[in-house]
């Protein structure tokens, strides 16, 4: 995921002389954002890859090539634990988010009047744009010892003592992240559902399927690309969030991103932080690719 997917090959270069004026103008225009991304994305990514093979020597960086950082990550249990916990949290968050989001996307696409669809999408995206830090913090207010849930339940007499398992642990992190990434999951699914030709569903019912079996046999398989998109767009970024685990996770809810942040900003060990970032990135990419691959196989086996 992190490398340039496709650049101009030699064969393509040979054809450049045949480009039309329109194409040449397009290349020139795209050159600016491309150069920007090259300098501020590809180059820095290359730099952390390089850095991860160097080591921190007190205040200076030792630039001899070594895999020591990776050995350390492999050998000390803390990194493995954090990484596994991160992947698990991201996985659960993704699962919860996508499962909760699908019916909403389905509802907007199939049951909302076309003129109202924009309004629904707008309402769903608004909370996502409002101050992230404060939103995360508000979950603390909701889930906290004196929080909305505890005080509410105490008031109602459901519980006699405040619940403590809902804050400062992994559960709290999952709830908060699932909330933060909700619109991310709805939009890709909605876009794909919108593209489904409605006459296909009528055809299926005309051919004797019930509404529910039509959903299972027609709508769901056709919407899988959107589900895959939703999974990726939730799964990949959640691994990089350190705010939520920091505020909500307590001691037992810290994730790999917190460790990366600590290595860079507190322990001043950028090479180890870089190696951790790369390991996390590689794991996420591998799992994502595996998921995409599984989904392709599943769809192919059906047809």
């Amino acid at each position: 995921m992190i490398f340039v997917r496709k650049s101009l090959s030699i064969a393509d270069m040979g054809k450049l002389s045949n480009l039309t004026g329109d194409q040449i103008r397009g290349i020139k225009l795209l050159g600016l954002p491309f150069t920007y991304a090259l300098l501020l994305l590809a180059l820095p990514l290359g730099a952390i890859v390089l850095f991860s093979f160097w080591t921190q020597d007190f205040m200076t960086v030792d630039t001899t090539f070594t895999t020591r950082n990776y050995q350390e990550i492999w050998n000390s249990p803390i990194y493995g634990l954090l990484l596994r916990r991160s992947l698990m949290v991201s996985g659960i968050v993704t699962l919860v988010t996508v499962l909760l989001a699908y019916p909403v996307a389905y509802f907007i696409s199939f049951h909302v009047k076309p003129s109202k669809k924009s309004l629904w999408l707008f309402l769903i995206t608004i909370p996502f744009w409002t101050s992230y830090l404060i939103r995360v913090f508000l979950w603390k207010v909701i889930l906290g010892y004196n929080g909305v849930i505890n005080s509410g339940l105490l008031e109602l007499g459901v519980i006699t003592e405040p619940l403590t398992f809902i804050l400062y642990n992994v559960n709290a992190v999952i709830i908060t992240l699932a909330h933060a990434f909700a619109p991310f999951a709805i939009l890709p699914i909605f876009v794909v559902l919108e593209k489904i030709d409605r006459s296909l569903l009528e055809a299926s019912q005309d051919l004797g399927e019930s509404k529910f079996s039509t959903f299972l046999r027609v709508t769901l398989p056709l919407s899988m690309p959107g589900v895959v998109g939703a999974v990726l767009i939730v799964f990949i970024p959640t691994i990089g969030d350190y705010v939520t685990p920091e505020l909500m996770g307590g001691a037992g809810g810290k994730l790999i991103a917190n460790m990366i942040q600590t290595q860079f900003l507190q322990l001043n060990n950028a090479p180890l932080g870089a190696a951790l970032a790369i390991v996390a990135m590689v794991c996420v990419t591998a799992i994502s690719l595996f998921f995409v691959f599984l989904n392709r196989k599943y769809l192919a086996s059906r047809s």
Partner: peptide, 22 residues
């Protein structure tokens, strides 16, 4: 090229942060 420019959309922000910091 367009896909590459759109990449930050799906990249974890911490990766962008640390790589630029480095």
């Amino acid at each position: 090229i367009v896909g590459f420019v759109m990449l930050p959309l799906v990249l974890p922000e911490i990766i962008i942060a640390v790589s630029l910091l480095v």
